[in-house]
């Protein structure tokens, strides 16, 4: 688990020098080598000071910081895997019950940070750690930032393209918590279908095309103000009629479809908030007490909450279930 990241010129590289046993507890080390002229990278300062004030069962715990002249080491709680790895281990879509449990925890973490006016701004499966129990922990707050109440303009170059909402792709810098809700919606779909919701090609224009192919091209009628966005050009997005269908969303069971659609609204103002989404009927099959836990208590403390065994497992192909037990179609 040592993804080398070159984030900005400030950082030469960052890696996870995993697994150390301190006081009998497993920890993960994130080592950041510094280019000396700029001091501590802003991503590290933001991440550390944010994690100092965020105490939540679905947010990774930062135990300690070791700061020397050349490097900076963050000591995190050790979490076994992340959602990207989990999905590649269980291809073709996750068990619908497990998706529900993961999405609930993701929205719980988002509701917590959003109520403190903090945006994550870089949601993607790699940044969601998964414990062996199934606990989801939001990590990598390097691009997160505390946000004061009136909306400020942020630079638009922050979110990984596949999880970037259309308003930001169209050049809006006036984004808010709806930014993270779009990313969460994309991850939701990816867990269900086993492949990314909007795997666009390299450019922002192509990413928008991929989105419009599913949601339809927006207009002033369904998204007031869209034509005022910096990168909006009328007539720019004309899709072949055959392309303009929403089969992607129509295959879903009703309640799932409803929540996914509320999260993946093109117009940011129409997107459901994290707090409201936790009350959605999609979660009604989970035990009621999980909605009334203290921030720091894991949902797995509630009796009856557990992960189901995934149907497919690339590490245990022999354990494959009988074909009749597999979902009939490649749908969620």
């Amino acid at each position: 688990n040592n993804a080398a990241t070159t984030l900005t010129s400030y950082i030469l590289f960052t890696f996870w020098a995993f697994l150390l046993r301190i006081n009998g507890q497993l920890v993960a080390l994130k080592v950041i080598h510094m280019k000396t002229e700029e001091g501590v990278p802003f991503t590290a300062i933001r991440e550390a000071s944010l994690l100092k004030r965020l105490k939540h069962a679905n947010i990774v715990v930062l135990h300690d910081i070791i700061h020397t002249r050349e490097s900076l080491t963050f000591v995190f709680e050790y979490v076994q895997t992340d959602l990207a790895q989990y999905m590649s281990q269980h291809p073709g879509g996750l068990h619908s019950h497990n998706v529900r449990i993961f999405v609930f925890q993701l929205l719980r973490a988002l509701s917590y940070i959003h109520s403190r006016r903090i945006l994550h701004r870089d949601l993607k499966p790699q940044n969601l750690l998964i414990s062996y129990l199934g606990e989801l922990k939001m990590a990598d707050f390097g691009l997160a930032r505390a946000k004061s109440v009136p909306s400020q303009t942020f630079s638009s170059e922050v979110v990984t393209l596949w999880y970037r909402p259309p308003d930001v792709l169209l050049g809006s810098t006036d984004y808010s918590t709806a930014l993270d809700m779009w990313g969460a919606g994309c991850i939701f779909v990816e867990m269900l279908q086993g492949k990314p919701a909007f795997p666009g090609d390299a450019t922002e224009f192509e990413q928008l095309q991929t989105i419009w192919a599913v949601l339809g091209v927006p207009s002033e009628d369904n998204w007031p103000g869209v034509s005022q966005l910096p990168n909006y050009k009328p007539g720019q997005f004309t899709l072949p009629a055959s392309c303009n269908d929403s089969t992607l969303l129509n295959q879903l069971p009703y309640k799932t479809e409803d929540l996914v659609q509320k999260m993946l609204k093109a117009a940011p103002a129409d997107r459901i908030s994290a707090q409201d989404s936790l009350q959605h009927p999609y979660f009604s099959t989970l035990p009621a007490p999980i909605r009334h836990l203290r921030d720091t208590v894991s949902i797995f403390k509630v009796p009856g909450v557990h992960l189901e065994t995934e149907v497919r497992d690339v590490f245990n192909p022999g354990r494959r279930l009988k074909p009749t037990l597999l979902p009939t179609a490649k749908c969620w």
Binding site: V40, I45, L50, R53, H67
Partner: peptide
């Protein structure tokens, strides 16, 4: 500046918000 940065972060336990 960098030395001072390290001192401040250390004295304030990286808790700047």
């Amino acid at each position: 500046i960098l030395r001072m940065e390290r001192i401040i972060l250390d004295k304030l336990h990286w808790d700047l918000y």
